[in-house]
């Protein structure tokens, strides 16, 4: 009889562990005001970045950011503006990765989140856009 009780306890413990694990794997929290604000800011900026991705002036970096790839693709008069765009986008992206890690109470996940995004930005990039490969070289998609 006593053994049966312990068997129940063991089964219950296993089920509890499995449930907790499933919950942890289910989803990453991204529905926070901070994440939404950054996302909105990036969405608004995208209209200005889009022609720069297409022309190859700006490329996607291997660390989940953006960088000036070809300054010659930008008229001299617009270079300061493009640099400001890149700086603002880089700042937003860094903040996004940090905020998602924080929203999930796992600040140590920031670099993993950054790496995941880096890969997905590149996967979802349009043909013709430039990205950095693992070695840091620019590649045209």
């Amino acid at each position: 009889m006593l053994h049966l009780t312990w068997l129940r306890v063991a089964v219950f413990t296993i089920l509890l562990g499995a449930t907790a694990l499933a919950a942890a794997q289910a989803n990453l929290e991204i529905n926070t005001p901070a994440v939404a604000a950054i996302q909105k800011s990036m969405q608004d900026r995208h209209a200005q970045l889009l022609p720069l991705y297409s022309s190859g002036a700006v490329g996607l970096t291997r660390d989940g950011g953006v960088a000036l790839r070809d300054a010659n693709a930008v008229p001299l008069a617009q270079r300061a503006q493009v640099n400001a765009l890149i700086a603002a986008e880089s700042q937003d992206r860094a903040a996004l990765y940090r905020e998602i890690a924080r929203a999930n109470a796992r600040p140590e996940w920031e670099s993993d989140i950054r790496a995941t995004f880096a890969q997905r930005w590149i996967d979802k990039a349009q043909p013709g856009w430039y990205y950095q490969n693992a070695g840091g070289a620019w590649v045209r998609k």
Binding site: I100, I113, T116, F117, R120
Partner: peptide, 11 residues
């Protein structure tokens, strides 16, 4: 996997 889904939604 969860991080990838989250990234996809945001991107």
């Amino acid at each position: 996997a969860a991080a990838e889904r989250a990234a996809d939604r945001i991107i």
